[in-house]
Write a protein that binds this DNA or RNA. Sequence first.
RNA 1: GCCCCGGUAGCUCAGCUGGAUAGAGCAACGGAUUUCUAAUCCGUAGGUCAUAGGUUCAAAUCCUAUCCGGGGUACCA
Length: 540
Amino acid sequence: MTLHDLMKNFIQDYLNVNKIEFNDWSINPNTQKGFGDYSSNIALKLTKLLKKSPLEIAEEITNHHNNKKEIFDLSASKPGFVNFHISNKYYIQILRQIIAEKELFGKQKKLNQKANVEFVSCNPTGPLTVGHGRQAILGDMISSILSWQGYDVTREYYYNDAGKQMRILSESCYAKYASKVGVAFDEPENGYIGGYLDEIADKIIDKYGKDLTKDDTIFRTFTEKEIFKDIESSLKNLGIKFDVFSKEGAYYKNGSIDNVLSILEEKNLSYKKDGAIWFKTSELGKEEDKVLVKSSGEPTYRLPDIAYHADKVDRGFDLIVDVFGADHIDTYPDVILGLKCLDKKTDHIKVVIHQFVTIKKGGEIVKMSTRKANFITLDELHDELNSDVIRYFFIMRGANSHLDFDLDLAKDESEKNPVYYLQYANARISNLLIRYQKEINENPKIDLSKLNEKDEISLIKLLSKFPQKMDEVSESLEPRKLATYLEEVAAAYHKFYGNHKVINHDDINTSFARKQLCEATQIILKNGLSILGISAPDRM
RNA sequence: GCCCCGGUAGCUCAGCUGGAUAGAGCAACGGAUUUCUAAUCCGUAGGUCAUAGGUUCAAAUCCUAUCCGGGGUACCA
């Protein structure tokens, strides 16, 4: 039973004994010192019902029989809080547990549940940009968090290998090819002009010669393959690997797109107008109807997206997470609506929307466009900064905040990046443990009750919160919260380290207890960092 | 116009399922070093939580309106 449950039970017992039916109350950790570790607002909430002053009620609760005295004491404080003071003994007990369970501490058992996390999912029309990085890292970390919580996670990348953008891409590639081999050609409208296409055109010349015609499928298939290879390698540089790649084309081939259309038609949820097929979203609470198939006969992205999501639901995942950029904020509800119309389950789909990354270069905001080739690639970023820094940089801000990525400052700031603060705490511990082994090399009986300094206790308290923190992080799907927690742990450790010597030949018992505390801290730091995909070097 | 984010210290941001005295990093200033690795620690200074109302015993947090910034509002994806 968790600490939270124990405290809750105590209050519930008070309510039961006094025959009070009431559940609008909570227990929260205290931010202020001097009022214990946790406080409940129960007495404040009961004032109206019991027609007594809150402080009076709080005192009454404080005097209620407490059979968990070895775990917590109680006090009441104005204006009517019930405070829980957790005993050091309890925390020491948790510390013992961390040391015993090692890197398994806080790790959830296999749930026998499958989760699917879809992220990045951009079309292979060019290299990944810095803007994609945020999504890549966010999605990867969310996946790791869910694994830690016991899910069997599939990382999935979905892309459109069949639509208009890919056609323009192949035309653009042909344009490069034609100009290189000296054949007349039409400049494609809205074509891509990036230098990466020059390289691909060169490769095509090397491999297939100079006599290809515009209609040759090589321009599409080869270009797609080359670009995709680059995307995969950019992701790999950041430690990201996908399990499944789903292509839009497959949903045409297996008929599932037609199937969606016929079901909607059957249910009278679509109609034809101006040569296009429309989805009656206005009848389902939206402001206007949306086009499913253009008058040209090409579907809009909406239709295959519905078919793709229906497939994901059919594959039987217990949790589906979609990580989207802010541009999807208006479109994903259409997809969910579509699923509902197909009678698919949707309440296990969670959508994480993140705001865009704006890039600052030379003090100015750069509008990036793959087509116009004025982007900064993830690879270029990786040349300047190591993967640990990049990963941390992208989740330092909440997904809902805009991320201003100042390239000129990124390098400067990387030296002050909090990620080093975390890694340094770990490296300090590694070094210390080696020294301990060398200098003391003696393992007396464990007596963790030696740990009663303020800095020691507050460090242990933080460590004990790790499992609860992971629950919170996986519930909210916000990796940043884990990073913030780890920073707190590192800070508490650095403080402890600065104020107390671990290796002390005159007091082997205390030394040993402190060494154990260091080991426990390292376990938490390493676990946390590994979930975030950040390395934990032993030396810095 | 409509929709979605955001507005908190000089800067970048936490805190937002309402709780006690609003936090951190950077920048500024002062201190700790023959180090168990100073990539660290301690201290000082810095705030009308955009504004105005409302709900509440209690509002940075919830509601309403206004202002400012970003994004979205395609038979593009």
